[in-house]
């Protein structure tokens, strides 16, 4: 008797589950059949009235009906969930070819880029990065660098003078003087910064440009060390092995003084318009620090010596980025500056 009721119940419940059109129909079946006051709960109350062997058999049957219906409900619910998820996903189509909102990053100035790159390089080699003022004393810019008043070398650097007698530094070399006076030997320092020359501006000349001054002072610094150091440095800057050569150059704050050329990176030394067919490109002035310069900054040249060099950051930035008009760098023209 109970057995057929159970079997009918399972059968009809399965039919209702299969026919359910929405999750709430399943919930109704669950409450009606499997709920605490549902049909199966009612039937299980009847079990006690049965003889023991019948009770065990019907009890087993009841459990299996319950399990079967739970499985059927879960599976149907799974179908509903799956369908709902599918519909949601379907409705959430997005066109990622549309442009992203928000502001695009701006660009750092080409000189900033090259300058920070070279600063990092020097810091990794144990150099301090020093600053100096753009308005300098005549003493620091010239006298302390072995260029006394009326020295013809002053012509090499057309100077902007201020009405108060100071000047706009014509090179970053005065920071050498400040570095030597502040830190003393041994010393490894660079000084990047803005410098000024009283020159007419055209595509290759500027009255305002950027240099990086470098200096190393130690017990025993030779020309061989200078060449090694410059070669290492320039290879790192250009990301390839560069060949360098020294030739005499005159700068009163070094002795001997050199112009350092690198083998033309465009033609490899064979000769091309960039190197004016010579195979070499003039890159930086350098030399061993003049004993007068050391002495004027309170360093004994018999005990210490060193080398110094000046790197033209503006020129380097123009080479790196292929900028052919120096005026663009200080034009503030975003058509150029946003390219980097």
């Amino acid at each position: 008797m109970l057995e057929s009721i159970l079997r009918d119940l399972e059968c009809s419940a399965r039919e209702r589950i299969a026919a359910a059109k929405a999750p709430q129909y399943l919930e109704a079946v669950r409450i009606e059949v499997l709920g605490r006051k549902g049909t199966l709960a009612q039937i299980s109350k009847e079990l006690g009235k049965l003889p023991p062997e019948e009770r065990a058999r019907i009890g087993k049957l009841l459990n299996s009906v319950k399990q079967n219906l739970e499985t059927a409900l879960d599976s149907k619910k799974g179908q509903f969930d799956h369908e709902a998820l599918r519909e949601r996903l379907e409705s959430e189509w997005v066109d990622l070819t549309l442009p992203a909102p928000g502001t695009r990053p701006g660009a750092l100035h080409p000189i900033t880029r090259i300058q920070t790159e070279i600063e990092d390089l020097f810091i990794s080699l144990g150099f301090a990065v020093l600053d100096g003022p753009e308005v300098e004393t005549e003493y620091n810019n010239f006298d302390a660098l072995n260029i006394p008043p009326h020295h013809p070398a002053r012509d090499m650097q057309d100077t902007f003078w201020l009405t108060d007698g100071h000047l706009l530094r014509t090179h970053t070399s005065p920071v050498q003087v400040r570095g030597m006076e502040r830190l003393g030997p041994p010393l490894r320092m660079i000084a990047p910064g803005r410098v000024f020359r009283n020159e007419e501006v055209d595509a290759s000349h500027e009255h305002t440009f950027y240099q990086l001054e470098g200096m190393m002072i130690d017990r025993d610094v030779s020309v061989a060390h200078l060449i090694f150091f410059m070669k290492t440095l320039l290879s790192a800057i250009f990301h390839r092995d560069v060949e360098v050569r020294l030739r005499p150059g005159y700068f009163p704050f070094v002795e001997p003084g050199f112009e350092l050329d690198i083998k033309c990176l465009i033609c490899g030394g064979g000769g091309c318009p960039v190197c004016k067919q010579s195979g070499w490109v003039e890159l930086l002035p350098c030399g061993l620090v003049h004993p007068n310069v050391l002495r004027m900054s309170g360093i004994d040249p018999e005990e210490w010596n060193g080398f110094a060099f000046g790197l033209g950051l503006t020129r380097l930035a123009m080479m790196r980025y292929g900028i052919d008009d120096i005026r663009l760098l200080q034009s503030g023209d975003l058509r150029c500056l946003t390219q980097f």
Partner: peptide, 17 residues
Amino acid sequence: YDTITPSAPMVTATVPP
């Protein structure tokens, strides 16, 4: 100057300020 062999300077390894 091209007859001079480049060589690494012997300097103390220090952390720069």
